[in-house]
Structures are given as C-alpha cells and as structure tokens.
C-alpha cells in the first residue's frame, strides 16, 4: 500500500490566537515495501506528519491517500478506522499504553478492535510474542510485573499483531540501553525484510537512519525541505549542516579521512564494512 500526501497542510488551533502551522503544503509519497526515515528538529512537523499518516490527525487542507482510502478535513470515522487498520503506530515509550490484566490479552486488544475473532487474535498474539522472544510462561502474567524492556516488547507485539502493512516507529529506542537498542532495531529490520512491511522511522539517531533506511525525508519548520535516497542525503555534509543535523558517525569519519587523502570507492554502512574498505585501501597503498 502506498501512502501519498497531496498538498497537505496541517494547522493546530485554527482560528484562535494559538494558531500554528505544523505542516505546510506537503506533497510526497511513501512507497510500499521501503524503509523510510523522517528527520528534523523538535517542532519541525515530524510528529504531525506521522499522526496524519495513520489518521490520528486529519489534514486541514489537502488529502492523504492510503491505498484507495482518501482522508480529508472531514473524513468519516469508518474511513479513519480503515486507515488505522493498515497503518500501525509504535509511539515513543509504547509500554505506557499497556492496560490489560494479562500480557496475552493486551496484545489481543488491537487485533480484536480491528475485527479479528477471539481465536485469530489469540493466534496472532502468541505468534508475535514469540517473535519478540517473550517466554510463553509470561503470557498470563500482568504486563506490569515485567521488566521495562519486556514491557516495551509486549507493547510492540500489540501493534505487530494487528498485522499492519505500514509500520510507523516514533523514537522506538528512547530510553533503551545500547544492547536493547540494537536488538530492537534489528527486529524491525527483520520484520521489514521478511514480511515486506513498509517502515517509517522517526528518530534523532542519525546512525540508525543511515544504517537501516532506504529513503529519507527532511522536515524543517513544517516544510518538506528534501527527500531522496538515504545514501545520498545523509552523506551530504552541506545539506546536513544547513538543517543542523548531525552526520552519522561513519559518514563523519569517512569525510574526515577524505580530508587526509584516504578515499573509498563507496560509503561503508557499518563498522565492519568500514574496516574492510580501510584495510583494502591500506594494502593498495602499502607500496
């Protein structure tokens, strides 16, 4: 399912002294099966954009096309519900949304709201809890007895069990320790690759955006200022500087080495790839 914004403008508190233009005339597409990153400073419109993507906010002007459903300023509840079914959203600190008596019931909440019957919902819940390495012995315990990391996994399972075609991640690793951070990002990467789900990642962590996403959209003060391939945008020092975005660690290192005369044919994506390229360069220049 593709999602397209057509001349979309979003205004908060319209016609009051607090009026605020959050998104300004944006036309863009999120194509099926790709991994997107949305970057920009606090207040750039990122969170308005993702909430508009799944119908939590409706556009003030313009349209959102999600598959063949169109959302406008005054769309019907039924259409909005349809969009939510296809577009899942993992909020920042998703563990704060847990409420059921047991882990299993909590994960089943979303699927049941989306019209799955009890049995299917339970099947899905069990499947995704397993996928997230939650031990079956915990299924009947209260989610509030789990550790913070496990609670987050249960909350994520609750979204995945709705089997969305598009998955939006809002700072999914906030507050996690570095190991869980890597584990969580790898998990989404696997889901993206194995199940072909479109992923839209909003984060401050430019290393994650660089490593995992295919496409990047840069927002600044409500404008979509640049979009394109991650490998093009996040390696463009001038562009990043203009919107005061940090370059990813590897990009910074590669550029610093270029200034020393060490140049690589391609941009490495991780430490291992960098090390290999570097060693290659060393052997070639040893003579």
């Amino acid at each position: 399912m593709n999602i397209t914004f057509k001349n979309l403008t979003s205004i908060y508190h319209e016609n009051t002294p607090f009026e605020h233009l959050a998104l300004n005339n944006i036309t863009t597409t999120f194509e099926e099966g790709l991994y997107y990153g949305i970057v920009g400073h606090t207040g750039s419109g990122k969170s308005t954009m993702i909430q508009t993507l799944n119908g939590l906010l409706l556009p003030s002007l313009g349209e959102v096309h999600a598959g063949n459903i169109v959302l406008r300023r005054k769309s019907r509840q039924r259409n909005i519900h349809q969009v939510k079914k296809h577009v899942g959203m993992v909020f920042q600190f998703p563990e704060h949304q847990l409420f059921e008596e047991t882990v299993l019931k909590d994960v089943m909440f979303g699927p049941k709201n989306m019209g799955m019957d009890q049995r299917t919902a339970e099947e899905k819940a069990r499947h995704y809890l397993h996928l997230l390495n939650i031990d079956a012995s915990l299924f009947d315990t209260s989610p509030f007895d789990l550790s913070g990391g496990q609670m987050r996994k249960v909350a994520i399972a609750g979204i995945l069990a709705m089997e969305p075609e598009v998955l939006i991640l809002d700072e999914p690793t906030a507050g996690l320790d570095p190991e869980s951070h890597i584990e969580t990002m790898e998990l989404f990467q696997n889901i993206h690759q194995d199940m072909g789900i479109t992923v839209i990642l909003v984060t401050h962590d430019m290393n994650d955006v660089f490593q995992y996403t295919d496409q990047v959209k840069i927002l600044s003060e409500g404008h979509l200022v640049k979009e394109g391939r991650t490998d093009d945008l996040l390696t463009d020092e001038v562009l990043l500087e203009r919107y005061s975005l940090e370059p990813p660690d590897i990009v910074r290192l590669v550029h610093d080495l270029e200034r020393k005369g060490i140049t690589f044919e391609q941009m490495p994506k991780n430490v291992e790839a960098f090390a290999r390229l570097y060693e290659e360069w060393r052997t070639n220049h040893a003579q």
């Binding site: 519900h81 939510k84 959203m89 909020f91 998703p94 979303g110 609750g158």
Partner: peptide, 8 residues
Amino acid sequence: KAQSARGS
C-alpha cells in the same frame, strides 16, 4: 492517541 491507533 496510542489506544486510538490500536483501533479503540
């Protein structure tokens, strides 16, 4: 918003 995204 979070619960509404879960279809509530």
